[in-house]
Simulated assay, not measured.
Amino acid sequence: MPPLLELINVTKHFKVTSGLLGLQSGTVRAVDGVSLQVEQGETLGLVGESGCGKSTLAKCIMGLEKVTGGEVIFDNKTLAGWDQKKLRRSMQMIFQDPYSSLNPRQKIGSIIREGLDIHNIGSKEERREKVNYLLQLVGLRSEHGNRYPHEFSGGQRQRVAVARTLALDPKLIVCDEPVSALDVSVQAQVLGMLKDLQTQLRLTYVFISHDLSVVSHISNKVAVMYLGRIMEIGPSKVLFKDPKHPYTQALMSALLLPDPTRQPERIALTGDLPSPMNPPTGCPFHPRCPQAFEKCRNGRPELMALDTGVQVACWLHTPSEL
């Protein structure tokens, strides 16, 4: 059975212009050759530092940004082959800020019903019943449909955003840091709700976050992104237990564990994230890598499968260096 979502060498470059004539002065390589697969019913967690290209990749998956190169294949069809209106019924997105993503002039019921109205799904009464059902599904009451977004807390607003996303019965939901703007206690509630909905409705998630504890809690598979490229990808339990790439190891070392006696030794990275306008030659991580050697500076490693089921782009794990 083919994967629900497949990315094949996806790139997204932005032109940088300057001067009165708007001449191109450079190129931002926001996404630089990403390939991955997401199976039906699983959750792919996408992690990395701010500015590594996670949100841009999410927009490429959704078709909100046209890719510079490569292909995005959804449900066995390239995005270009989809009718965009039909695509929106099968693929939805939850945004980071639950307040700015909701129209403050619309009542909650109208916000959730809008997709049903646009696609002309059901009668007026059936749409009203669907809205009430969705409100109850995300832990709200039917009467909440008559209120405005500003009357709700952040957690409740994000529940409304989830209800709106579910209105068209999508197969894939891209979650772009959906809990990062919420309090920790509310985060746990929303994450629990998302997991329950996934089981109940057979949903597939691409879950973007910079919080490793959140990603480990909700994801079946994790992809670690750095400077527009995938550094390591594999099953969540395997990757969190034994990370192979030095960048993944540095990220994991900052993760706080419940048992203070089991805290890993912190790996401090030197330097800042390089500019995507002028990425380093060779491995993009080598200027900050504590284990870099000459080959890292000259050649760019590709993802290589290991026996554990993890793929890693690192010269330390190529056959010639083992």
Rank of each mutant, 00 (worst) to 15 (best):
L64W: 10
T27L: 14
E6L: 13
G299T: 08
L79V: 05
E65L: 10
L20T: 06
Q311G: 01
D242P: 02
K54I: 01
Q106R: 10
S50N: 13
K171Q: 11
R202I: 02
L166T: 03
H317G: 02
T68A: 10
Y133E: 15
V222S: 12
G154I: 01
P235W: 00
G282K: 12
G53H: 11
E302S: 10
V162N: 06
E114Y: 03
A268G: 01
S142A: 12
Q158D: 06
F152W: 01
T17Y: 14
L182Y: 03
A167N: 02
S253V: 04
N278G: 05
V131P: 00
T78S: 14
N76Y: 10
G228S: 02
P178W: 04
T248L: 11
S100Y: 05
D307W: 05
K244D: 00
I118S: 12
M193W: 07
L182R: 06
M193G: 00
W315F: 12
E302C: 02
P2Y: 07
Q200E: 13
G70W: 13
I112Y: 00
P258H: 15
F152V: 06
P3C: 04
C175F: 10
L269I: 01
H286Q: 11
D117I: 06
I121C: 08
R164H: 09
G109M: 09
I111R: 03
G81K: 14
Q198P: 02
V72D: 09
Q291K: 15
S209V: 08
L194P: 07
G155S: 11
V186A: 13
Y247G: 11
A223I: 07
I208N: 12
R88D: 01
I61V: 13
Q92D: 01
S275F: 03
I267P: 02
R159C: 03
H217C: 03
L212V: 11
I233R: 10
T17A: 08
E321V: 02
S209C: 13
R127I: 03
V34K: 14
Q263N: 11
F285C: 10
K54P: 02
L87S: 01
G41P: 06
S123G: 09
M231Y: 03
P98L: 13
Q200A: 13
R288I: 01
A163Y: 04
R88E: 02
T270N: 15
L316F: 11
E114L: 02
R88A: 12
G70P: 13
S18L: 08
Q158P: 10
S110Q: 13
P290R: 15
K59I: 00
N278S: 14
P98Q: 07
D196R: 15
F240T: 06
A30S: 15
K77Q: 14
P246T: 11
D97W: 02
L135G: 03
D32T: 04
Y148R: 09
R262L: 14
E294C: 01
I118P: 00
K15L: 10
P170C: 11
T204Y: 09
G81W: 08
L306K: 10
K130I: 03
L182G: 08
E143M: 06
H119V: 02
K85W: 08
G299K: 12
H317P: 05
F152L: 14
T204D: 07
M62G: 05
E49R: 13
I8N: 09
M93C: 09
L21G: 07
G63T: 08
A30H: 11
V238Y: 04
V160T: 07
